[in-house]
Design a protein around this nucleic acid. Structure first.
Lengths: 203, 203
DNA sequence: TAAATTACCTAGGAGGATTAGGCAAACGTA
DNA sequence: TACGTTTGCCTAATCCTCCTAGGTAATTTA
């Protein structure tokens, strides 16, 4: 009955590695138990349940990603910062597909507030200081950047860009150029009222 | 032993509805069998396995979404078309969260080619005819639009925008304004060579 | 109406999630 | 160093989902 030395953190880390190897959805209590050569039941002293395990992996991924982005952002401003942020984000997703998938896990409100997701939005805001946006434009721009980066990485990973000869690298580079241009030349608001584009189009 | 009248299409439709009610990940063979009051094994005459069922739901969702977008797009051009497309897309995702999640399922290459995903990219290209983009800019713009729409909907659904007072409606409207402005004023390529923004930023 | 097809069933196995309760290793303390 | 406590891992058992093989009865076809 030699003890393996399980604890919550080791389980989380091993779970994250497993996610990168076989996919986040294939990270199960059983698989992790097998990895450590112990019985399934043994894990339940360290994690509440399967959901808890997955949440922990998600939080770990969010921290790692935030750390990377922070490092990439240090000492940069303007387009430099934008590009550094975007590449750090995309590189992480490509190097750690399982962890990135984990970071997409829907967290409940409280958990999200305690997570590194907060740092992410702060850092996105930090980029925009290099551009000249007043509220609420800044919030809108934060959301646009978040959406575009996340969307691009998601579609790229799903293989949606493989049906066209153009490489995703080239497009990525141009997308960043375009976003930079857009932020430097953010369209004026028409009035205090919103313009009409928000109307839903229903059949 | 009264027969319920199962067939592949009914299973797929019921699966899609179940997805909208309880979430796509909770659509299981067992749950669907329960819904029809039959045994699990009975479904296997109509779908190959659980994965097959999910793929069929995904393909259904892609068709529905493409139909909606096509209807919204009819007779519109320029920003009008852009907004109609975007709203049709977003509205579908909000009305049918389970189906939208299904549409995100990773399909293998062949399946994707036979799916309505092809119509989606064609329609995105159609929007761009209202703007003046030559290849490869058009491809880049298609990818940007796809990324942004998908990313926005995904983040909105995940609740990522709830921590800020600004409503997502307002932001959405401004994001569309911004994308329109960007497409009308797409940055020139510097040369045949790509510029340097594609470099990865590694610690 | 007999034959063929089809829709659903029973039975059962494999694997994952989870709980209750047990034993022994490791640790703190005297 | 011995003693009690904590705790790390175990066995055993239950429940759920996925899936296959093989059967029977309802429906369709000839």
């Amino acid at each position: 009955m030699a003890r393996v030395g399980l604890n919550t953190e080791r389980l989380t880390r091993a779970g994250a590695e497993l996610a990168d190897e076989v996919g986040f959805d294939k990270v199960t209590v059983s698989a992790l138990a097998r990895h450590f050569g112990v019985k399934d039941a043994s894990l339940y002293s360290h994690v509440k349940n399967s959901q808890d395990l997955k949440t922990r992996i998600a939080l770990l991924a969010l921290e790692e990603l935030a750390d990377r982005v922070a490092a990439a952002l240090a000492g940069r401003a303007g387009k430099d910062a934008l590009v550094a942020f975007a590449n750090a984000y995309r590189d992480y997703a490509r190097e750690h597909p399982g962890r990135y998938a984990a970071a997409q896990l829907e967290l409940d409100y409280e958990t999200a507030l305690g997570s590194a997701a907060v740092r992410h939005s702060q850092m996105t805001r930090a980029i925009l200081r290099g551009y000249d946006l007043a509220e609420p434009d800044e919030t809108d721009a934060v959301r646009l950047l978040g959406s575009t980066f996340h969307g691009y990485v998601a579609l790229e990973r799903a293989g949606s860009f493989q049906h066209t000869p153009r490489t995703t690298e080239q497009t990525w580079s141009r997308v960043l150029d375009a976003l930079d241009a857009l932020l430097r030349n953010w369209p004026k608001r028409v009035s205090t009222q919103e313009c009409a584009t928000g109307l839903s189009v229903e059949p």
